[in-house]
Amino acid sequence: KWEEIAERLREEFNINPEEAREAVEKAGGNEEEARRIVKK
């Protein structure tokens, strides 16, 4: 599940997989929260 979210974030925000994974981890697997983290 987290991998899927990280993949979507990576494609959408054009970030590297590591950044995407970190955002999802910080968000506890919550996609909306992960998006907010990435946008900062």
Rank of each mutant, 00 (worst) to 15 (best):
E33M: 09
F13N: 05
G28V: 09
E33K: 06
F13P: 01
N16S: 15
E3V: 10
R8I: 07
A27W: 01
E31Y: 15
G28R: 12
G28H: 14
I15T: 04
K40Y: 14
K40C: 09
E11C: 09
V38S: 03
A27P: 00
N14R: 02
R21Q: 08
A34H: 01
V38A: 15
I15G: 02
E3N: 11
E25W: 14
G29L: 03
I5C: 03
N16H: 11
V38W: 04
E4D: 12
I37F: 10
E4R: 09
E33W: 10
E22F: 11
W2E: 05
R21M: 14
G28T: 05
I15H: 00
E32R: 10
E4I: 09
K39N: 11
E33D: 05
R10D: 03
E4T: 07
N30A: 03
E25L: 15
I37Q: 08
R35A: 06
A27K: 01
A6Q: 07
K39D: 12
N16I: 08
R8T: 05
E25I: 14
E11Q: 15
A23F: 05
F13H: 03
I37Y: 10
R21H: 07
I15Q: 00
I5E: 02
E3K: 09
R36N: 15
I5P: 00
E31S: 04
K39G: 11
E22N: 13
V24C: 05
E7I: 11
I37P: 02
E11K: 15
R10S: 12
K40Q: 15
A34Y: 00
A34L: 04
I15V: 09
E25Q: 13
E12W: 05
K39F: 12
A20N: 01
A6P: 00
K1G: 09
G28E: 07
K26M: 13
A20I: 06
E18M: 11
K40L: 15
R21S: 10
R8P: 01
E22W: 14
I5Q: 03
A20G: 02
L9F: 02
N30D: 11
I5L: 08
R36Y: 08
A23K: 02
E32L: 07
A34E: 01
V24T: 05
R8M: 09
R35H: 06
P17K: 14
A23V: 08
K26Y: 06
